[in-house]
């Protein structure tokens, strides 16, 4: 009986350690439960909001082992949408995103540091306009659990501020508009 208990607990331990293998989540872009938003000051008088409509990615996540968290997102830069065709055309051009030459922006995490329950700092390589820089920014879990359709989902948000000149975007929009805030809101479906 004792032996059996030991065997069972070893088995259980083996199972739990197998469980700490982070699960892979596919970002739900099909159902559009994910957004890459940005905002930048206009003249210093208001915020201009926009987003990238087309992107894809996945992340690794396990609540029990947050240090194993990882994410990869690829953004179609031509999908920029600020709700104004003439402006979007300009933003896609050489003055800004130069989407012909650099059709993709991407973020690939290189590390994650937990800072509390459902919170952490993610660091990784961000590529925009052909320039890759290592950045880190805070992320937080919004929630996770079973969805009504038989799947399991987890959602996060992260926010960072980029200096446009760091990515060779030097078109003069004025002193209030040298930085852009980017917000990533993602919901992943566990695979």
């Amino acid at each position: 009986m004792k032996k059996l208990l030991i065997a069972a607990s070893i088995g259980l331990a083996a199972m739990t350690s197998a469980n700490t293998q982070a699960a892979t989540y596919e970002i739900d872009t099909k159902g559009a439960h994910a957004f890459v938003q940005f905002r930048i000051q206009h003249l210093g008088y208001s915020w201009l909001l926009g987003r990238f409509n087309t992107f894809e990615g996945q992340f690794e996540y396990d609540a029990a082992a947050p240090e194993k968290s990882a994410i990869e997102v690829t953004i179609d830069t031509a999908s920029i949408d600020s709700n104004h065709a003439e402006r979007d055309k300009h933003l896609r051009g050489e003055d800004f995103l130069n989407v012909k030459e650099h059709p993709e922006a991407s973020f690939k995490s290189t590390g994650f540091e937990s800072t509390g329950e459902g919170k952490g700092i993610i660091s990784g390589d961000f590529t925009l306009n052909g320039v890759t820089r290592n950045i880190s920014f805070p992320v937080e879990r919004i929630g996770e659990g079973e969805d009504p359709w038989g799947g399991y989902r987890a959602g996060f948000m992260g926010k960072t501020t980029l200096k446009l000149a760091d990515y060779d975007i030097t078109y003069n929009l004025g002193p209030a508009s040298t930085h852009v805030e980017i917000e990533l809101h993602i919901e992943g479906i566990r695979q």
């Binding site: 709700n83 104004h84 065709a85 003439e86 979007d88 055309k89």
Partner: peptide, 8 residues
Amino acid sequence: LISTADGR
């Protein structure tokens, strides 16, 4: 078609 692409 450029200027009216967004419905404006």
